[in-house]
Design a protein around this nucleic acid. Structure first.
Lengths: 143, 143
DNA sequence: TATATTGAGGACAAGAGAGTCTTAATTCAA
DNA sequence: TTGAATTAAGACTCTCTTGTCCTCAATATA
């Protein structure tokens, strides 16, 4: 459903939203906390910088931080920035051009499930999600 | 969500369920109707033969046909045979071991959507699906 | 029995996604 | 001003899925 890159991106963004203060956080710190490859995560976060979801600073005490308040970033923004629109309009049977006008047999049932998923991503802010993560004691890391 | 192989397999099985009579249907016929590569589809259908969802016969007037009544095959059987169990217990954030005991932040919301999807696959028989496909005028082919 | 037709099976090629590595550019701090 | 820390950028490798190709085995039919 979501690519690995997108999964890493989401986890990193949630982690960043949990940080107090306004300091830059080195990517290396994030990657070691989440236990993912540093160069790979760096490349992913770079995409989020380009899409204006993160800002970055080079040099000592540099790193990345959220470009705006976590209450103003939705999970959907992150997924779109990394995986693009295709997640949202793919057909379960892989038929090109499947849609309301020429549906495949699964279109209706799948469409409903998918739109529920999309709604969740669109409605949930990063702030809400980070808080739920902390309060619920949920984890972002494999270990 | 589903691999291309699985998508092709589902489309082929629906197409087979729509055939009247009990004759073997050559894979070549199926592949050209669905407009997918013949060798690739052959390999996929072979898996379904091994899993006893199809029976095959070589030689002239050979081909494949459903191993049992389409009322006795569920979409779930096909997905399991091709993509395996991993479709059903994957974590949205890709965390290994994510589950009730150690959930990731998305576990609950995603779990519900996924279990709806699974229920649909488990409850829908190939017969019901093929009929809906014909009655609704839905399509299996790209063109 | 001869032959054309079909699936079975394996080796191979192409593509995408995942992940690594190296070098350059930037910036803080001593 | 020098050096260390850090992101930026691109080339590269690996692996898995997708897809192709060729040969072999089976079998219905003439």
């Amino acid at each position: 459903m979501l690519s690995s890159a997108c999964q890493y991106g989401l986890r990193a963004m949630i982690y960043l939203a949990q940080q107090p203060g306004d300091a830059y956080l080195p990517v290396r710190r994030i990657s070691s906390t989440l236990d993912v490859s540093h160069p790979f995560l760096a490349k992913i976060l770079q995409q989020l910088v380009v899409k204006d979801l993160l800002v970055s600073l080079r040099g000592p005490s540099g790193g990345v931080k959220l470009a705006r308040a976590s209450t103003d970033i939705r999970l959907n923004d992150i997924v779109l920035a990394i995986d693009g629109q295709k997640v949202f309009d793919s057909c379960v049977l892989g038929l090109p051009g499947c849609g309301h006008r020429r549906p495949c047999p699964m279109h209706e049932a799948w469409g409903e499930l998918r739109s529920n998923f999309c709604s969740m991503l669109e409605e949930t802010t990063l702030a809400a999600f980070a808080e739920r993560t902390e309060v619920g004691g949920f984890r972002l890391t494999p270990m």
